[in-house]
Design a protein around this nucleic acid. Structure first.
Lengths: 212, 212, 212, 212
DNA sequence: TATGAATGAGTGTTCATTCAT
DNA sequence: GATGAATGAACACTCATTCAT
């Protein structure tokens, strides 16, 4: 419990702990958190640095002390998302048991995780084109590795004969991850379904679509 | 005298161009076409009015003669997309024949059509938040009507027993249209598959996922 | 009617003629004039665009309508100076008569002309390093052509035996033009000597230093 | 001796560096040296405090410990130059022997010395206007004293009849020191002439120009 | 119908400087 | 002596939009 802090594990001034609006959380953290919220809400281009720093309760100078630029802030958000998702996929893909079960678990998990971090997801595809070309290339490369990891899992199932193989595994990945990225467009926390429920349904649909 | 036009020296001095659909509005058309291309390429916010008018070979004043604002230009793009897609869905849904076939045809068509107008699709979700709140509401309402039309088709299949009914039809729509909107992220015309082929594959997957 | 252009020195709207502070001189002209004055007074880097446009009585937008950047403004000042000086040197160097007389006339003239445009001169050497590398190279190249023109004139005198030749002509140019560039540092219009007088004295000193 | 460079992190942890002149102030020295180099290269205004301290291998706090402000740093550079030049002029002017010889020696020396400290010279005239008004006044006053010292030497020669007196001695100083200040613009160490050679040539030209 | 000069509010970014430690 | 986080004012520049012509 008491989940907080991220980069500097050595906690900072734990004196005013369970306050309403995270009072003296490290500045860097606060900046990323508020930027994520605002970028998701209004888009990267329509959010000014001024709005971000005002929301984080600091001045512009402080932001430029921690981040090289507004783009840098976006980049950090991307880096976090990519790392997190890759870690989770690895865990599910490498688990023991039959391939169908692992695909189902991984699929349901990516849905649930995306819903838990829906702001990140909204930003991801909407703002990719704002990244510097190099960064964009790096993000795409990392994304491709993720895609390939998932595809290999599907291909394993095809070779094992438990999945149909008349549709290329790559195309199935594009088919399924459309649903993942689309979540930010329609899912609302106050809707009838929890993230886990959506995950299970979508994983069921995926598995059903792959029956030979 | 009669200075006008700039880039395309051809049609510029013609008073009544005898070409395609709208005879005396080539400027308006060109503006929408170039705006669509640029908004898809660089994003709405990162594309300046100056770039749009330069690409269309006119001046700013001309743009403000035809459109009330830059937002207006975006709005027109949305209106065209919405109209087109609704028309096509209506046609397929109202066709005769068993429901499974109609769903397959409609699904394959929306994929192929989206690929044919990939720039529109890229703009659609990426720039929705730039529309004025009222416009945004209108677009969402129209989008919902489209969604409901498709959902009703699925529900018809569920009632007929040809589709599984343990997954809400609404959720299936969100599942499938994720794949549609995601096309802009990965599809390239010079890839191995044509729009029609992707459409058929995706429609197959959808139908398979719905088997009871 | 009364089209009142911009660039052309052909005066604009001569209706309010001999007023105090040049009332409605073309905006572009006014910007260059005020920029020259301010850059000479406080330096290029220490003069803000805001100060320039305020002095010219326009807004920033207007400045950026006429000039691509603050650097561009500086560049235009350089271009004007270079053009003017080269023209005058050409005229004196190509005149008929003995070489000593032509050198004396050209030397006296460059002094007098520099004093007449002392602000340009102050800016020239003080702010050269602020120009974009390419522009800087172009300015230096043009400056070198000027230098060489003058050197050739001196070399002509050396070959004719009227100037000493134990000092390289190039070095004499560097020697003499130091005095020219230094004018901005010490000359004041309200001092005891006119520009013409300084010119004659300096030309005398140059000629005397060259006696064989 | 024991030139103690700048960059190397080595000397950083030494508490009592046992090197050259000022034993316990290597940081201060390094700051002045790097500031001189950078101000000459890119101009005072275009050089940030951050760049200076990075080049000197210290942090901003350290700089503000030794100098009151960035302007202070510039001021110190001026003070050093002024002191050095005045000392040398005094030495040459007060030497025994005929006045023409002393003028020649002083002139040749100021050229050579300036070339040896070309960065100082570049800064001198280019950045004078950045000094605080009071400091600027003080620098000008000191400069004037230098000027007058040199002028008196020339006047002594005029009274002795060895120099022409139809050109005011003050004006001759302005004439000659133009060449001195201009050195920073054209002289390069890898050119054909050494500082001493340029000094001799320029002193020759000066003396020749003064022949009655 | 169309131009293009001009606006004015806003943008991201820089930077000399301060201060608690 | 020295650090480095943080400030706050200034900076060059952009851009959608207007309007007289």
């Amino acid at each position: 419990m008491a989940r907080n802090g991220a980069r500097p594990p050595a906690a900072a001034t734990q004196d005013k702990p369970v306050d309403g609006t995270k009072p003296d959380e490290p500045v860097r953290q606060r900046l990323i958190a508020e930027a994520t919220r605002l970028f998701a809400e209004k888009g990267f281009e329509s959010t000014s640095v001024q709005e971000v720093v005002a929301a984080a309760g600091v001045t512009k100078g402080a932001m430029y002390h921690y981040f090289g630029s507004k783009d840098d802030l976006l980049q950090e958000i991307y880096a976090r998302v990519l790392r997190l998702q890759m870690e989770r996929l690895d865990r599910f893909a490498d688990a023991p048991g039959p391939v169908a079960g692992r695909v189902h678990a991984a699929a349901a998990d990516v849905i649930a995780t995306t819903i838990e971090n829906l702001d990140d997801s909204k930003i991801f595809f909407r703002s990719m084109h704002q990244l510097a070309p190099e960064t964009q290339k790096a993000v795409r490369a990392e994304r491709r590795r993720y895609h390939e990891r998932f595809r290999d899992l599907l291909a394993e199932g095809q070779r094992a004969g438990v999945f149909r193989d008349d549709v290329p595994a790559d195309l199935v990945v594009d088919f399924f991850f459309g649903s993942v990225h689309h979540l930010g467009t329609w899912y609302h926390a106050d809707g009838p379904l929890s993230g886990g429920e959506v995950g299970r349904h979508f994983a069921d649909l995926l598995l059903a679509s792959l029956r030979p």
